[in-house]
C-alpha cells in the first residue's frame, strides 16, 4: 500500500499515456481528456506542500531566534496576508485582487520591482567578473573569449558602426558552430530525459517516493 501501489500507479499511468499517443482511439482519447482536465486540479493542492514547508522553516527560525529571525516575519506575514486580502477582505477596505487594492499594490509595486532589481544586480557582477576572471589563459579560453566579444559587438548597434562584419560573423557563429554545440547538448539532454522517464515509469528510479512511511 505504501510503496507498491504508488509504483504501480506510476507504471500504469505512464504506460497508459504512452499508449494513448500511439493509439488515438476514442476510449484512449477520452481517458486523456479526463486526465488533462483533472491533473491541474490535483496539482493545485501541491501548493500546500510549499506553504507548509516555508511556514515550518521560518516558524522554526523565529522560535529558535536564529540569525536574522526577525526577517522571517517578512516571509510569513505576506504569505498568509496575500490570500486573505485578495480573496476574503472586503473590497471597501482595499480588498480584492484588481487595482486599486492592497493585494494589487503588493505584487505590482513591491514584488515586481524587488524581483526585477535583484536580477539586474547580475549586470554589475558580470562586469566585475569580466575584469577579474575572464582570462585568455589557453587557446580554448581565447576562442571562447573571442567568440563572446564578436557576438557581443555583433548584437549591438555600435558593432555595425565598428565594422559590418561584426554582426555577420556574430550571426554566423550563432547559426553554425553554436548550433552544432547546442544540438549535441540537446541530444544528450534528450536521451537523458527519455532514460529518466523510463526509469521512473518502470520503478528503477524511486527517489521521488521520499523516506516517509517506508
Amino acid at each position: 500500500m505504501k510503496r507498491t501501489v504508488p509504483l504501480l500507479i506510476v507504471l500504469v499511468g505512464g504506460i497508459l499515456m504512452m499508449v494513448q499517443y500511439f493509439i488515438p482511439h476514442q476510449v484512449s482519447q477520452s481517458i486523456f481528456n479526463y486526465y488533462t482536465d483533472w491533473a491541474p486540479i490535483v496539482s493545485s493542492f501541491a501548493l500546500i506542500l510549499g506553504i507548509g514547508s516555508l511556514t515550518r522553516v521560518h516558524a522554526h527560525k523565529i522560535r529558535r531566534k536564529a540569525d536574522n529571525w526577525q526577517y522571517s516575519w517578512a516571509v510569513l506575514i505576506p504569505l498568509y496576508l496575500m490570500p486573505v486580502l485578495g480573496l476574503i477582505w472586503p473590497k471597501s477596505m482595499g480588498g480584492g485582487m484588481d487595482a486599486p487594492s492592497i493585494f494589487h499594490f503588493m505584487y505590482m509595486y513591491i514584488q515586481i520591482p524587488i524581483q526585477a532589481t535583484m536580477f539586474s544586480l547580475l549586470a554589475f557582477y558580470i562586469a566585475s567578473a569580466a575584469f577579474r576572471a575572464f582570462r585568455a589563459k589557453s587557446a580554448l579560453a581565447t576562442v571562447l573569449l573571442l567568440a563572446a566579444v564578436v557576438v557581443m559587438l555583433g548584437q549591438v548597434p555600435i558593432g555595425e558602426l565598428l565594422g559590418s562584419w561584426f554582426p555577420k560573423l556574430g550571426l554566423w557563429i550563432l547559426r553554425y558552430p553554436n548550433l552544432a554545440a547546442k544540438r549535441a547538448i540537446m541530444l544528450g539532454v534528450g536521451f537523458g530525459m527519455l532514460a529518466t522517464n523510463l526509469k521512473i515509469i518502470f520503478g528503477v528510479e524511486r527517489n521521488w517516493l521520499g523516506g516517509v512511511g517506508k
Partner: peptide, 26 residues
C-alpha cells in the same frame, strides 16, 4: 505515505505523456 498517491499519479502520467513527444522534439 498517502501523499505519494497524487505524486505518483502526476509523475507517471507526465512521464508517459512526455516520452513520445520529447523523443520527437529533442
Amino acid at each position: 505515505w498517502l501523499s505519494r498517491y497524487p505524486i505518483a499519479l502526476l509523475m507517471g502520467t507526465s512521464m508517459g505523456v512526455a516520452f513520445p513527444l520529447t523523443m520527437k522534439a529533442a
